[in-house]
Write a protein that binds this DNA or RNA. Structure first.
Length: 426
RNA sequence: GCCGGGGUAGCCAAGCCAGGUAAGGCGCCGGAUUUGAGAUCCGGUGGCCCUUUGGGCCUCAAGGGUUCGAAUCCCUUCCCCGGCGCCA
């Protein structure tokens, strides 16, 4: 979320950003926020004055008792204060809750390079890599390819778990783990520290990472417990340093998480319903960086470069788009999507996503750093990016490496991991 | 899941039984001293608010209660350690 002190000083800036996002209803919230903040500060001061008075009388009583003097008079005087404090405190808390609620629902400030636009159609392509493969036959989509080779079972998955679930089978399971291991080796060489995080998180750490609407739209809740299924290891890696003040000389902290990801995919009915493109669970290797504010934009470029390098090594053509203001999401200040070419669909589709969240997650999660002892702490910046989301990569490999006979060549860099050069050879 | 012991500042800890200004040590930062380093000495070392060379409030795992006053007493929850149980 935004820093209250920042909004206090720069309300016009915050409003202008909301207009750029096309989020006009929230513009008025900024004025409301300032009003609540004013009242909150006024009552906080009053409460503190009362506390001061109480503390003084209390100390007086302690002193008199030590001298064995009568305290009934003072005690009577003191008895009246706590009730007043309690009443005021309640109001202070109410204001604070309202303020926090507004802050939690205001989106991040965007970087100036974010294109203004309404939806994904306004995203701006900034570069392409790779030759779009030419086939001397009509390329199949990943569903036909996988079903023909008996590499997935979607019907039985639907019967036992529902739509958007799948059984991966045989060599596709091997390929899946080959990609994960390949990615882990890659990111280890880049000196990222590996983490396999908890696959469930409590509400509080999650609130530090995501927009509140995500709790309804994307995140699965465990019934009867304060636990939520992990939607991405990004959330668990952020939570790792919740409420901590990091030592500035250890920054940046470069982490990589590997985990399954569980998502409700609410509101996507009718889109990408077939196959394993949009599913309720998948595996992902993630990059996550805690850094100083002045380093986050450079870091953002580094993470997308890493994701691109993986696609290049796998030989998968892709393009990078700069996601526009209307499609950006609440927490990111800027986001690149990496879209790989899918011959079966004849278009580029999202395979990875790289966001600079600036201080937005750090403030929500209360993660600071300090350069020198005695200096005031500052909020860190956080950056996250997919390295590989395995199911999306599986689709891309299947479609780009398909052969006329329906078999699939294994990308050369994966052969050491799969032990075979071709999938589905009779 | 049951029984027992715990959670105090960046870290280690005293205080809790018996309510009355959060000891002490380490680390770190700054200063003094020194040719330099070390040793020594002095000061600092979380968050918030205000009329900001200053002042005040909050902070002893979290939340509530009792009290003029709670780290200390009572209740609830979370987490850690040990033992038992269960277990891939």
């Amino acid at each position: 979320m935004l820093d209250l002190k920042f909004v206090r000083k720069n309300p016009a800036l915050v409003k202008a950003d909301l207009i750029k996002r096309g989020d006009l209803t929230k513009v008025k919230w900024v004025d409301d926020l300032l009003e609540y903040d004013k009242n909150w500060r006024k009552l906080t001061l009053e409460t503190n004055k009362l506390r001061e008075m109480r503390n003084k009388i209390t100390a007086e009583i302690a002193r008199l008792k030590k001298e064995n003097k009568d305290v009934t008079e003072k005690t009577k005087e003191a008895k009246e204060i706590p009730l007043k404090i309690k009443r005021l405190e309640q109001k202070v808390q109410d204001y604070r809750k309202t303020i926090n609620h507004i802050l939690l629902n205001l989106p991040n400030l965007m970087h100036e390079s974010v294109p203004v636009g309404k939806d994904e159609n306004d995203n701006v392509e900034i570069r392409r890599w790779g030759e779009i493969p030419k086939f001397d036959f009509k390329p199949k989509d990943h569903i036909d390819l996988a079903l023909n080779l008996d590499l997935v079972d979607l019907e039985r998955a639907a019967r036992v778990a529902g739509a958007r679930f799948y059984y991966l089978k045989g060599e596709l399971v091997q390929l899946n783990y080959a990609i994960i291991k390949f990615a882990l080796d890659f990111i280890t060489r880049k000196e990222f520290a590996l983490f396999q995080p908890p696959y469930m998180l409590k509400r509080k750490p999650l609130e530090g990472a995501v927009a509140l609407s995500d709790f309804e739209d994307t995140i699965y809740k465990i019934e009867g417990e304060d636990l939520y299924m992990l939607a991405t290891s990004e959330h668990a890696l952020l939570a790792l340093h919740m409420d901590e003040t990091l030592d500035g000389k250890n920054l940046p902290l470069r982490y990589s998480g590997v985990s399954p990801c569980f998502r409700k995919e609410a509101g996507t009915h009718g889109r990408d319903t077939k196959g394993i493109f949009r599913v309720h669970q998948f595996e992902k290797v993630e990059q996550f960086v805690f850094c100083k504010p002045e380093d986050s934009w450079k870091g953002h470029e580094e993470l997308i470069t890493n994701a691109e390098e993986i696609s290049q090594k796998l030989g998968l053509p892709y393009r990078i788009v700069n996601v526009c203001s209307g499609d950006l999401g609440t927490v990111a200040a800027k986001k690149y999507d990496l879209e790989t070419w899918l011959p079966g669909q004849g278009k580029y589709r999202e395979a990875a996503s790289c966001s600079n969240c600036t201080s937005y997650q750090a403030i929500r999660s209360n993660i600071r750093y300090r350069d020198k002892s005695g200096e005031p702490s500052k909020f860190v910046h956080t950056i996250n990016s997919t390295l590989v989301a395995t199911e999306r990569v599986l689709i891309s490999v299947l479609e780009n490496y398909q052969q006329r006979d329906g078999s699939i060549l294994v990308p050369p860099v994966l052969v050491p991991y799969t032990g075979v050069e071709k999938i589905g050879q009779k």
